[in-house]
Design a binder for these strands. Structure first.
Lengths: 199, 199
DNA sequence: TATTCCAGATACCGATAGTATCCGAAATGT
DNA sequence: ACATTTCGGATACTATCGGTATCTGGAATA
């Protein structure tokens, strides 16, 4: 009688690898993180990586999935705070400020996007995820707009695209230049979101 | 008597390498472009690269310098068109639309920014260049604002940062997803720049 | 208890950034 | 004009890393 089945042990291995890979990808970047390092840091050999993932790309995609999940959760929480529009914007701005202050995520995101240029699989998968992020953000925006009875300067889809792009671009620049003023994000968001009140 | 001195010939070699490297970096990306490919495409051997540049990083920096020069020129031209505010915004929007439509530049820019995480030299050099881009854009914005007598929703520095970040972020996403709506840039710019007229 | 199966280990290959060394022609000095 | 030095670029080599092929020990199955 086995305490843990083979499938369970493999799932544990996979989780360990993702967890360790996440730390390394985020702190050192995609290119600078070798599969050997990931495997050893997790207490395995490179073979373990290849028996759980088709390669480096799929491993990184799995890591990004865990990150995206948390990002969506954070966005939703910020925007569903029980407050008026300004309160929600403030909550979201605070969340964004914290994320952009140490923007290891965006750096990984854009570095991995570069990989997509040579890999159709990565390209299609990333496009799926980005569209998902944009459309769920747009839904949130529409909900807030309906609640608050305001009119947007941009439609929700475009606004969501602008905010995601701005966040990614700002994060990428911020990861180079830590003196860069992160409040730009909140300010821009206010300019776009507040729009002209119709009440 | 020599038709061309040694220094002249080396300068020619350097220029050839930069030109070829620019094409390859832009079309294939930083990681996917090997120095061997660059050298051969330019009709030299890898040794020629290393005798003109300290390595891949410095070569790419030289390429980016040629690009940044053109970008600044394009921005200045668009914003100094002899027209009213809307005309200038339209000119800039058209320029941005064309650049973001085939955003090979932003893709290279963000991929190379990832390299900076492992290379202090690249980091400091890129920061210098980005700050230069931001501050010269901010100057332009201030000039336009003074000319037109308008008030900004963001101060010029923040506005320039927002626009550069948005452009980079949008370009990075657009290089993945060519269905992405590039007009978001112009719309956002209008929202930020037009501000409240004071005349 | 014997057989099968497979997660993970080991050994290997190809590509590529970078280094060490070399060569030949141009620059320099007598 | 000839000898010597200099150095841009070529050649040969190393180290690292992603990926593949193969192997193995123990768990699953009969």
């Amino acid at each position: 009688m086995t305490r843990t089945t083979r499938a369970e042990r493999q799932a544990q291995t996979r989780e360990s690898l993702i967890e360790v890979a996440r730390d390394l990808f985020l702190s050192d970047g995609y290119a600078a993180t070798s599969l050997e390092k990931v495997a050893v840091a997790a207490g395995f050999s490179k073979g373990a990586v290849y028996s759980n993932f088709s390669g480096k790309e799929e491993l990184c995609m799995a890591v990004l999935d865990t990150i995206h999940e948390e990002q969506v959760q954070g966005i939703v929480e910020a925007f569903t705070v029980d407050a008026d529009l300004d309160g929600r914007i403030d909550a979201f701005a605070a969340w964004a400020r914290e994320k952009l202050g140490h923007p290891r995520w965006t750096a990984l995101e854009v570095e991995f996007a570069a990989v997509a240029r040579q890999s159709p699989w990565v390209a299609t998968e990333l496009v799926k995820r980005h569209r998902m992020l944009v459309s769920s953000s747009a839904d949130l925006i529409r909900r807030v707009v309906a609640d608050e009875g305001i009119e947007l300067t941009l439609d929700a889809q475009k606004g969501a695209t602008a905010l995601l792009s701005l966040g990614i671009g700002l994060g990428a620049m911020r990861s180079l230049d830590n003196q860069l003023d992160v409040d730009v994000f909140a300010d821009t968001m206010r300019a776009l979101l507040r729009g002209s009140r119709v009440d």
